[in-house]
Design a binder for these strands. Structure first.
Lengths: 150, 150
DNA sequence: GACCTAAATATGTATATACAATTTGCATAT
DNA sequence: ATATGCAAATTGTATATACATATTTAGGTC
């Protein structure tokens, strides 16, 4: 018998909700990386954009948006914050485009973040377990609108 | 040396980053649910707390925090927003505790959200693919510090 | 060339989220 | 009874994120 209390409704929404799980995993994993990276003054959200920028060389906001499934406004403001920190710089170009690239300081951040990132990656593998790690390691189908071409 | 261009560094941080993947999946999946739920005026983040509250009957903030891996301040403010909408109510209790429960309006929201949630769940399964769905469906080890003990 | 539309970016506003600091109520030792 | 300390929750502040709206500019069409 269920609850002592009055459950006047009955729902099918429960622990099987993929959004709940995905968000839980995201929070848990992010917190591991952020904890390891904290001494360096960067969070994994920004580090990911730096690393992608490194791989792209010259990064166009629209491309970053599509590859990371981020809204343009989100990228706009994240880039602005990292520009303010001197990690990115906008590449002068004609037109509306505002492509950006790493500065030397941005490269240094990536370089210095490596040990922390590796430690976090190992902790995350432990936490998630082989099945999830494997599943996440495969190219994420429609999700990686660019994840494989690098 | 290798690059003509200014790749003065070489990093091991790349597409294998579990945080990047987990966050990408979270954003992509969340957007599916939020899109389906939009007509109802709720997002999956809040719906999850409502559903958990439904299962708990009386929900203590600290318990919700641990089960969902959320900071106490996050729960505090999410609950406040849903209280303002009339979906949750605080249960008077001695001490510092502020346990809360669903209101009738909160129950209605869950009830009315079911079709949208199911549609989103199917779309998410399609997007993620069997391996990821399977991996996410298993009890998430240390992650579900309460997923099973209810 | 003036005009219109489509694409790329930025801005306004709101929620989600976390960390640090503060408040609050309770237990307990002295 | 007081001080001490602990546990739970809130508040201050900052970032991450998205949607709606505005802005800017490149290309066409006439």
């Amino acid at each position: 018998m269920a609850e002592t209390k009055a459950n006047t409704i009955d729902t099918q929404i429960d622990g099987s909700c993929l959004a709940a799980k995905a968000r839980l995993v995201s929070r848990a994993v992010s917190s591991i990386y952020d904890e390891e990276l904290r001494p360096l003054g960067i969070k994994v959200s920004q580090l990911n954009i730096l690393v992608l920028t490194y791989h792209l060389g010259i990064a166009r906001p629209a491309v970053v948006c599509e590859m990371l499934h981020l809204d343009t406004s989100t990228v706009s403001r994240n880039v602005e914050r990292m520009r303010a920190k001197g990690w990115l710089e906008v590449v002068p170009e004609a037109g509306r485009a505002q492509p950006f690239r790493l500065t030397r300081a941005g490269e240094d951040v990536i370089k210095k973040a490596e040990p922390a990132w590796k430690a976090a990656q190992e902790r995350a593998q432990q936490l998630l377990g082989d099945d999830l790690v494997q599943a996440l390691s495969k190219p994420l189908g429609e999700l990686c609108a660019g994840g494989s071409q690098r």
